[in-house]
Design a protein around this nucleic acid. Structure first.
Lengths: 114, 114
DNA sequence: CCACCTGGTTACCAGTTGGATACTCTGAAA
DNA sequence: TTTCAGAGTATCCAACTGGTAACCAGGTGG
């Protein structure tokens, strides 16, 4: 993924139109993407995921951890999250779906609007 | 898909463990699979999807139709549903995900249990 | 000692999804 | 004429999900 920006996943984010969900809950896919380029701290994740409240972000991270996609490491005054191999694999599948979606974006959009 | 059997998607159906959802709602993936081999009537779909109530099945079909994955055809005393090209494409993506999942089934299962 | 930062937690609430159950309408069949 | 099959609707309700807002505990810098 390109660099993490503030509030990358706004209301109008086109991903909300895609006909699938990856991971256990609403924000899983976004979290996976934010972890793509290496470990991140909780507070780092809050920047791109600005409209996810801490409670919901925690829930999402815990679910991803439970399912083996993310590893949580706590060392004094520092908690980091990173993708496991399985998590990287899942993220890859997300990109497969995104590729297909962008190939068929016109049809997908037309069906929704028409 | 193999032939449609009665109640193919029971409670213990392993698909409920897969970390993704394809299509607009809970039963979309199952409906797509049931339509894979050609058009089906409403009552035909109710056989493999025995534990989906008619209301919910209708909802699912309407959503799939709205999104352009399924085409509904009503000719006197006969309503048939069939996949559009887009629907076939989406189903193919489902199989991609299933392939990946079965490759990593052990890891997926272990994470859930451990 | 006090404020502050990190990484959360708690309690509460609203919206959405899906399920149970019963009912309906239409046109053919007997 | 009643009945039946097909294709749904109509209500109601419980569970689940996600969101708001507020709070907190432990370490750090001044």
């Amino acid at each position: 993924m390109e660099a993490l920006r503030a509030d990358m996943f706004e209301e109008i984010c086109p991903s909300t139109l895609l006909p699938f969900r990856i991971g256990p809950d609403k924000w899983s896919a976004a979290v996976l993407r934010c972890l793509e380029d290496g470990p991140r701290r909780f507070s780092e994740l809050r920047v791109p995921l600005a409209r996810v409240t801490p409670k919901v972000l925690t829930q999402s991270l815990r679910a991803l951890e439970r399912d083996g996609f993310v590893r949580r490491t706590a060392e004094a005054r520092r908690v980091t999250y990173e993708l496991t191999d399985l998590g990287h694999g899942l993220l890859k599948q997300l990109y497969v779906l995104c590729d297909w979606s962008s190939e068929h974006w016109d049809e997908l959009l037309e069906a929704r609007e028409g």
